[in-house]
Structures are given as C-alpha cells and as structure tokens.
C-alpha cells in the first residue's frame, strides 16, 4: 500500500498532524475513538498493574532499606520506579502490546478489504483520516494512562507500606512530593510522548505496508511489535541518560 520508507512516511504523518485542524471534519471522531480505546478502555488493566507494582516495590524494598536504617529512601525509590523509569516503560509496553497491535491489524485488514482504496477514491487521505488522529490519540492516551499509573502505583505503595509502618496519608504524600523534582515529571512526559509517537507510527506503517493477503497481517504485527519494543527501549535509555547527565543523579 505504501511505496515509501518509514522516515518519509513519518515526516508525512507529522506534517499532517501539525495541520490536524484542517481535516477536523473527518478526523476528529477517529481521534476520540483512539483516545477511548487506548486511554480509557485500558484503564482497568493499567490501574491493576500499577497498584501491584507499587505494592511490590514496597514489599521488596522497605524491609531491605529498613534493615540498613534508610527507610526514607523508599520515597526516592517509588519516584524513580513508578514515575521516572519502570512506570513509563511498563505503560508503553502495555500500549504497544494492546493498541499498537490493534492499529497494525486494523489498518492491515483495511488494506486487504480495499477500504484504504475506497478512502483514496473518495479523496480522503488515509494518512489524514487514519494515521494522524491515531498518532495524536496515542500520545494523548499515553499521557492519560501514565497519570493513572503514577496515581495508582503510589497509592498501591502507600497501602502496602502501612503494613510495615503506619504512616498518615498526608505525611506519606508530603514526603513523596518533597522528593519529587519537576524534571522527573518532564522526563516521564517526554518518555511517554515520544514512545506514543513511535508506537503509533511504527504500527500504522506496518499496517499500511500489507499488500493484499490477509496472511501478511500477523507477519506485519510481529515486525511492528519487535520494532516498537526496540524504539521504546532506545527512547527510554536515551532519556534516562539525559536525566543522569543533567541532574547528576
């Protein structure tokens, strides 16, 4: 379906979503649907995983830190795992596995059933109508999901920490906020935003490069997941290095 490479495709999509308002009459519904599917319908799964991970960090970390008299480090560890490093990675991985594969499958099937041809024949650009709103929706959704994840992960940590030491909720959150640096939030947002951009671009590209056979769809899906995972790792490692260089921590 697409006769050009990933980089020109990405440039085309990004230039298109900068002018998203021009195609709002046809693309807005797709954007809303993408945010609902990725950012809202995944809520239950993300909340559950966030609470479990928050709890797990406390269960594993608190006894060790308490044993060396550094129980207060638990806030720093919660921030570094839930907010800055592990949390964004897990959320991006969930979105890649859930929504990235859905995008590749949906677009691939649309190519096979000639729906993309039909859009072209109606004068509707598949990039403007199908890809740009998905990219934008994915970025918005990842920011939303990350917010849930942080809230629930920390809350899960708080619940479990009470099993070791009874702390009033206000004290717990006051200590946590005092350890939180604004740059932690910036790095978290950059990680999820760039990952959302690349997951959706890679998934859309592989969906649209299906030619005509339905058997190509799972093959493209495998490629999309593999490349999506590599891109997430590269983005997260690069931004973590940037964080270390800038903050010296």
């Amino acid at each position: 379906m697409i006769a050009y490479g990933f980089l020109p495709f990405s440039a085309y999509v990004i230039s298109d979503f900068i002018f998203f308002h021009r195609n709002r009459s046809i693309s807005f519904d797709v954007l809303v649907r993408q945010v609902r599917f990725t950012g809202v319908e995944a809520l239950g799964l993300v909340v559950l995983i966030a609470m479990l991970i928050g709890a797990l960090i406390i269960v594993q970390g608190y006894p060790l830190l308490a044993a060396i008299g550094q129980g207060n480090w638990i806030y720093d560890i919660l921030i570094s795992t839930i907010v800055r490093d592990l949390g964004p990675f897990i959320v991006c991985f969930i979105v890649l596995a859930r929504s990235g594969t859905a995008i590749t499958t949906e677009l691939g099937n649309m190519v096979v059933s000639k729906e993309i041809d039909a859009l072209i024949a109606m004068g509707v650009s598949p990039i403007s109508y199908l890809v740009a709103p998905r990219v934008l929706g994915m970025i918005v959704s990842l920011v939303l999901l990350m917010s849930y994840f942080v809230a629930c992960g920390i809350f899960g940590g708080y619940l479990v920490s009470n099993a070791f030491q009874s702390i009033p909720v206000s004290t717990f959150f006051a200590k946590l906020v005092s350890e939180l640096h604004w740059f932690d939030i910036v790095i978290m947002l950059l990680k999820v935003a760039f990952s959302g951009l690349f997951i959706s671009l890679i998934a859309s590209y592989h969906g649209l490069t299906v030619n005509r056979a339905i058997t190509e769809v799972p093959q493209r899906n495998i490629k999309a997941v593999g490349r999506g995972l590599i891109s997430i790792c590269l983005i997260h490692v690069s931004l973590t290095l940037l964080y270390v260089i800038i903050t010296g921590r």
Binding site: E106, N109, M110, S113, K114, E115, D117, A118, L119, A121, M122, G123
Partner: peptide, 20 residues
C-alpha cells in the same frame, strides 16, 4: 484533484465500506 475525486464516483466489487 479534489474536484476530480468529488466528480468521479467509484464503486468497488467488495463495496469498500469502512468496517468500523
């Protein structure tokens, strides 16, 4: 080109309706 797309109605064998 947009006018051309508006003025030419295309009907596909498998309808090409958007399934979602």
């Amino acid at each position: 080109y947009s006018d051309f797309r508006r003025d030419v109605g295309v009907v596909f064998q498998l309808s090409g309706l958007i399934s979602n």
